[in-house]
Design a binder for these strands. Structure first.
Length: 620
RNA sequence: GCUUCUGUAGCUCAAUUGGAUAGAGCAUCAGAUUGCGGAUCUGAAGGUUACAGGUUCAAAUCCUGUCAGAAGCACCA
């Protein structure tokens, strides 16, 4: 909005670039330009002189008199806009749309090992991934898809199956299958730690369960599918359901030999003749984005078996259309999971399809501890082609607090640690279901205490919003220490605060619409236009904050950091709250413009709620 | 041991990616309100950005060193 106008004036000014524009923290100006410093550095001149030049330049180009005043402070060029210009922009306000609409952005998140309930750490992953999907859609990218990797093979799930079949653990109990599986898995893990011979038996069992023609394999598929459905149900409770493509690990196996033969012939991986990796196929001579050498990574062991990353690589190459092979997908929503699910059958009765597009931008949301194998895979792909932009969204762990550990029944002793890592084997895990149930109950009690009339369904939605918002409001590199006190906070920068602000603005707007019901039908703007030529200081603060939305969206497109948006929306609601508290809106002589401000405010808020996948209400 | 990341108010986190006077929320204190040591509102206090140097108009941010913490470096999955 405002930035665009300044860019249009300054685009031919030598040394100017769009990044020089920023919104100052205090009342230095409506927007601020720092170009003078850059130019001064190159020319070895005084920045104050350059800033004066910029000022004169802008004023000479400003034919519509949009600018009221320009102040030079410490070398910054600070611009104050004319009220009429701001009002005009308010009535024409539209949200940022990217110029990369034709891009294909595929985002993979929440890869699941189906042997336990989804835990809060994975929930962080889901929240980030799902919100990024909504984000890219909201800025107008046409082809955005959510990918989901389903890890239904490997030792973890086979261990679970062993417990069910050989140890006769009851998987058919009433209840959510992921929770039943989690309990069985924790139990067998303890037994495995204590009993060495059990490990050998498990290895023998694994050979049978990996054989696709064996009964155990079919059973494995059945069990893991049931757990997957339970995991998906959990995500749906958090309003996370935008999965377009599901890739089952079991369907990757069919391609692995041929894809790797290809990689060998291309020289991407080489057999090591001597040294500690003798006999293995390794990736060599890879460089990361900073051109630093990446250590060799074994992909095929000396006994000709594949490591885990190998499967990952094959999956990635197929989905990115970098081999001559491609997945077959079963099409349709009837599987209860997503639009496309991989399959290895060629049953003519089923709706089998190929996907003939691939992403120009592939984003993977995965914990920071995975950054090494991820670097290897990205580097291999970069070696094959530079036509795929690979982005790794790494985030830090979700830890649990001492108090919660105690509550779960772990003896801490005089341990000085403040936070603990979760471990499925030990069973000190907080599942997403548990925290949602606990918080829902907490909200319900709060609402009874405050005599609010809120139904059970709403309590659950409020709880889910709050947890998601909490997860998203931290920058990715910050480890989250889970403590009920913090997650359950309904004050400050929390979802509850935003929902209240929204309900307040909606309340005023609805009252206005009731009185002025004729306006909505007559024109596409729902507000009477008036000839206001000035704005008050408190209005101006809120208007400028609303305009800032677009630069935030632009910035997120560049950095993918969603907490920029949580920070922004909190500040926005703060500005709204103080405006609401100090100024009258309905019945005031400035009613029209103030209603228009509220309309734009609530539109921005709605868009942000949608990005975060938060359900919102007109009334709370 | 090597690599990477992190270190900001008592606590939990921000800081437009090198910008102006480092900001919020809890907690604390002082007022206001009232059947409350509770709830709400207003305000205040709280900082040598782990430490020591360096780079420049400008450093929490970049470079070097030291200290502290976390993760990764498997023929594990």
């Amino acid at each position: 909005m405002l930035n665009e106008y300044i860019v249009s004036l300054l685009k031919d000014f030598v040394g100017f670039s769009e990044e020089d524009i920023s919104i100052p923290k205090k009342n230095f100006g409506d927007i601020s330009i720092s170009t003078a410093f850059k130019v001064a550095k190159i020319n070895h001149t005084n920045p104050l002189v350059i800033a004066e030049n910029i000022k004169e330049y802008i004023l000479s180009k400003d034919n519509v008199h949009a600018i009221k005043e320009i102040k030079i402070v410490n070398g910054f060029t600070n611009i104050f806009f004319d009220d009429r210009f701001l009002i005009d922009k308010l009535y024409k306000f539209t949200h940022y749309i990217t110029d990369k609409r034709g891009n294909t952005v595929w985002i993979e998140h929440t890869s699941i090992n189906p042997n336990k309930p989804l835990h809060v750490g994975q929930l962080r992953n889901s929240c980030i991934g799902d919100s990024l999907i909504h984000f890219y859609k909201s800025i107008g990218v046409n082809d955005v898809r959510g990918l989901f990797y389903f890890d239904n093979t490997g030792l973890q799930v086979i261990t679970l199956l062993y417990a069910i079949i050989i140890n006769h653990e009851n998987f058919d109990l009433e209840g959510k299958k992921d929770h039943i599986a989690g309990k069985i898995y924790t139990k067998i893990s303890k037994q495995l730690e204590e009993n060495e011979t059990l490990k050998d038996e498990l290895k023998e069992f694994a050979k049978l369960a990996e054989n696709q023609n064996h009964e155990y394999y079919r059973r494995l598929m059945d069990v893991t599918n049931l757990i997957l459905l339970a995991n998906i149900q959990t995500l749906r409770d958090f309003n996370i359901s935008k999965f377009d493509i599901v890739v089952k690990e079991s369907d990757v196996y069919g391609f692995i030999d041929e894809v790797f033969d290809n990689l060998k012939s291309l020289g991407i991986i080489e057999r090591e003749v001597d040294g500690k990796n003798a006999g293995c196929f390794v990736s060599k001579n890879l460089y990361d984005n900073d051109n630093k050498e990446i250590p060799d990574k074994i992909l095929i062991r000396s006994n000709n078996t594949y490591v885990y990353s190998a499967k990952d690589l094959v999956y990635r190459l197929l989905i990115l259309h970098l081999t001559k092979f491609s997945f077959s997908f079963e099409r349709g929503e009837n599987n209860g999971i997503s639009e496309y699910v991989t399959t290895n059958t060629d049953d003519p009765n089923k709706n089998i399809e190929k996907i003939d597009t691939y992403p120009s931008k592939f984003m993977l949301v995965v914990g920071n501890e995975q950054s090494f194998p991820e670097k290897v895979l990205s580097a291999i792909i970069k070696k094959i082609t530079d036509k795929r932009e690979m982005i790794h969204i790494g985030y830090d762990h979700v830890l649990i607090s001492k108090e919660i550990m105690k509550e779960l029944g772990f003896s801490i002793g005089d341990d000085t640690k403040k936070a603990y890592r979760m471990s499925g084997r030990k069973g000190n895990v907080i599942s997403a279901d548990d925290i949602l149930a606990k918080f829902t109950e907490y909200i319900a009690n709060e609402n009874i205490k405050n005599k609010r009339d809120v139904n059970a369904e709403m309590n659950k939605i409020i709880a889910s919003n709050a947890i998601k918002y909490f997860m998203l409001s931290r920058s990715y590199s910050t480890p989250i220490c889970l403590d009920y006190k913090e997650v359950f906070s309904l004050e400050g920068n929390s979802a509850m605060y935003l929902m209240y602000a929204y309900a307040r603005s909606k309340n005023i707007l609805n009252q206005y619409y009731d009185v002025n019901s004729d306006i909505k039908q007559k024109s596409n703007s729902s507000v009477k236009t008036d000839n206001q030529t000035n704005i008050t200081p408190s209005e101006k603060v809120l208007i400028l904050k609303i305009f800032e939305f677009n630069s935030i969206l632009k910035n997120i497109e560049k950095t993918n950091e969603l907490n920029l948006l949580t920070n922004y929306v909190f500040e926005l609601c703060n500005e709204f709250s103080s405006f609401y508290q100090s100024e009258r809106i309905l019945g005031h002589e400035r009613e029209c413009i103030r209603i228009k401000i509220l309309e734009e405010f609530s539109k921005v808020l709605e868009k942000i709620f949608n990005i975060f996948g938060m359900i919102y209400f007109d009334k709370i």
